[in-house]
Amino acid sequence: MSAENAAGTPPLLDVKNLSVRYPLRSGVVEAVRGVSFVLGRERLGIVGESGSGKSQTGRAILGLTPQPGIVAADRLRFDGIDLLSLPPREMRRLRGRRISMVMQDPKYSLNPVMTVGAQIVEACRVQKLAGGRAAKDRALDMLAAVKIDDPRRVFGLYPHELSGGMGQRAMIAMMLVGEPDLLIADEPTSALDVTIQLEVLKILDELVATRGMGLVFISHDLRLVASFCDRVLVMYGGRIVEEVAAARLGEAGHPYTRGLLGSAPRLSGSVHPLPVLERDPAWLA
């Protein structure tokens, strides 16, 4: 495993037997069931279909599982800090400054009544990085870092005045302004145009590489993840069914992964009948 650390320092993120349960009136829903993985300063992709628990895993790491969810794990450590027993105040200090998250749709994840600049400045202020002019300079630098051509103009714009790609870049700027060690990207490009997707990914990739962050990239796009990440976890029904190096995705052994790969459309030749995912209840056992 690439994350096994020879030097003996703890890995960035160490998850063992993580489970997220929702006790509802209609019974207990198990969203995540016994997920374990270790992450160093690398890019880890998590793929799976809707409801496979990939987003729930990301939220559980940040301690943002919505009520009435219950998070349990044998081990949930970030840089040697036990996240499960951390008091809320300490957890808040960790968020943004050490772990951050880029969300799916900038239309909803940016405050509609605050300008982009004000939101990034607010992020600085929350994390007690800087205030006043220093915060503004920092925000402008960050906007420039996500390849926004005219940071001064965008600084004063409201989210509805931005395109999707610009909005997501602003979101990335806002989430990276605290220079976190770990970034969780929860389908950061799903709401974007295909042509913009690659652009945003390139920016994300550069920032992650230059700042030496760990990245958890959650997506349902298997090929995208394979081209972008070092390692891929395939989730199904709240479990990790397969872990494979991105370069060797073609040699994946699990029938579910093979099914996902087979379902991807091909440009050359027609496939008849169209492949259908097979789901074996035995995988959930």
């Binding site: 940040l62 943002l64 919505p66 808040r92 200090r93 960790l94 968020r95 943004g96 400054r97 951050s100 998250m101 969300m103 799916q104 749709d105 909803y108 994840s109 940016l110 405050n111 509609p112 009544v113 605050m114 607010e122 992020a123 929350v126 994390q127 979101m171 806002m174 989430m175 605290g178």
Partner: peptide, 27 residues
């Protein structure tokens, strides 16, 4: 309360009081 931008504010480590004052009251 359930809006994504409130979740984003939480992600930055904003305290509940701050979220109410900065994000909810103006809306």
């Amino acid at each position: 309360r359930g809006a994504d931008f409130i979740a984003a504010a939480k992600l930055q480590g904003a305290s509940p009081l701050r979220i109410v004052a900065v994000h909810i009251v103006p809306m």
